[in-house]
Design a binder for these strands. Structure first.
Lengths: 195, 195, 195, 195
DNA sequence: CATGAATGAGTGTTCATTCAT
DNA sequence: GATGAATGAACACTCATTCAT
């Protein structure tokens, strides 16, 4: 949410809707402008080019996404609870925002390498949150020692991402949140120190 | 490998190379034709349209990919060993074919929803192989009961896929195969019945 | 006239007409294509881009222009007659081709610096023809010694060019060719060795 | 210099600089406004539109140009000296104002037919000055009789203009003023009554 | 007088696909 | 079967001008 630039936010919101409804490749700048209620040229007062709109969409939305999760986690006292919170909030936020789910799981992945690299960059803070949970669990001795944090994080993120993507592709026919405890149990057992 | 149509295979191989070298969006039909040593029009004697080339590329390559894994697994006697074999062969086949890894993990994901649905369809036999291992492990009582097979399979596939994608994006700088045992341990612990 | 590429010449001719009729800035590629009776895309099989069309127009037309003058001059036996021939043919060729006159004197001058540099390059052979006459006249002792050939050539070309441009801007209301002898006399007197 | 409107002159001067530095086509109104230190909208309090700025630039600058030459000539007593003065001052004024030379010889020529007609109109007083010298020379019997004044004037102006343009295009690498006497001699001989 | 945010018309170029030879 | 010349739809971005403040 950039300062008090109402047009900036109008355009961001319009972009999410247009991409969710039309698909990445059919999302012309003029369509976004029309939905935002501004002229085509106005877009370029707030964004350098079309790619900049898309990067900003992801930036703004992921910013909120991560911030909420980080806040939720900070109230929990151990890695176990934190992981459950992360899973639940990851699922809930996407389940609650139909358009956002389509855009992040399906449409934005069709972008070219450049844009994907930028998206990966934006994703980093979220990956760092996951890393922190892993490290905390190791300190708390509830996770095994000597784990490759980067690999574990890839497995956790890959698991969550694939589950959400499948849910979106199945047109969100079932309850995503219900899966949380199974996923949590799978990951916790996978990392557990006991054995 | 379709029948004995040499041009068909020339075009498939050319497509993999062209996409790996130029990226999805810079892979024009004319470029594929040139690399395959045929005229542009000839492409359309073997494929309905550009999407059909890409689907066929995935179909042919995944066909071999799955077949090899299925064969490797059939020689193993329990779910534990089968899972390890699947992980190792999944990693090894992509580590051994640089072009294929780039195409499947990065480039083909840029396709539109239609193409991705077709790709998912082609992937089904592989997902079925994973499902079979899960079911076998449950029968063997080495996995927990009452697991949601579909969910577990998504977590396993998501884990493997994310790890390979990260490895490709990091320009294959480290050894992918080395990760196999950690991944296997993570998943096995996650599914394990003991506790 | 390039080889036997009929489309190439159709496009060149169409470009001259379109520019003469609509002006430089209103000469869209699609308008040229329509007048040439080809599809927009066909233009790009024969020309790299729009500028290449314009350069080629000038190249082809000036090529013929210069060639004819060079041929005409070669039949003359002294600098005096050669100069008269050059003036007459310069005027006649533009007087005979209304469209070409408008394009070269008015429209193509609106091009940007890049294009103008290329046009100047194409003009060089013509300037060389003028230089040769000046040198010949000096050898024949009918022109003064010690003249700055480059400067003289600029004066001659500037004179002819300004006269034609004025004639085109006055909508070709009077007879351009009639001016030839006065211009010839002016230049000859200006260069004459007698004094 | 219009009235006592300081902003008017700021904009005129800014326009010359911007055009000289960026070229005709890259000289946006907003760039001129920024250089002039006024808001975009302010431009339109002093000029009807962009073309009006350019016409006014030429008007103001040519007004001074012509006035100085007319004053210089009025001090001379015969057509011969007046012509030399005109040539020298024409060359000197452009040699002394780098920006003006670029703008008048190269950039403003890229304008469309409309603007060029207006520029020609502004040029008329200068052409009249040349005409007067020609007529005076004829009266003084130092020029031939029966000359087509308009044609002679075109030749003189064309000569001077082409020489200056060449000098600007050669990036003003040599001394323009040095050419004056040769040019004067060429024209005088060309018009001379003796023979 | 002065501002500057907002407007919206206009166009060169690519490339998947066709079809006459 | 094979060719490759020809097609034509589709779209991001700039910038002169306006007008509410």
């Amino acid at each position: 949410m950039k300062k008090n630039k109402p047009k900036y936010n109008q355009i961001i919101e319009a972009a999410v809707e247009v991409i969710a409804e039309n698909g990445y490749h059919a999302s012309q700048v003029s369509k976004i402008a029309r939905k935002a209620g501004v002229a085509d040229g106005t877009i370029y007062l707030y964004f350098r080019n079309k790619e900049d709109i898309l990067v900003s969409v992801f930036e703004e939305k992921m910013g909120q996404f991560i911030e909420k999760i980080a806040r939720g986690i900070s109230e929990k006292n151990n890695a176990d609870e934190k992981l459950l919170t992360l899973i639940e909030m990851h699922f809930r936020q996407l389940a609650d925002d139909h358009h956002l789910a389509i855009v992040t799981q399906l449409e934005l992945r069709q972008s070219n390498k450049d844009l994907r690299l930028k998206i990966n960059h934006i994703l980093k803070p979220y990956l760092a949150v996951i890393d922190d949970i892993i490290k905390e669990g190791t300190r708390e001795k509830i996770f095994r020692d000597n784990m490759n944090v980067q690999l574990i994080r890839q497995m956790i993120f890959g698991t969550l991402d694939e589950i959400v993507t499948n849910w979106v592709m199945k047109e969100e026919k079932y309850d995503l949140l219900e899966q949380s405890s199974d996923v949590h149990e799978f990951i916790m057992s996978g990392l557990s120190a006991k054995k």
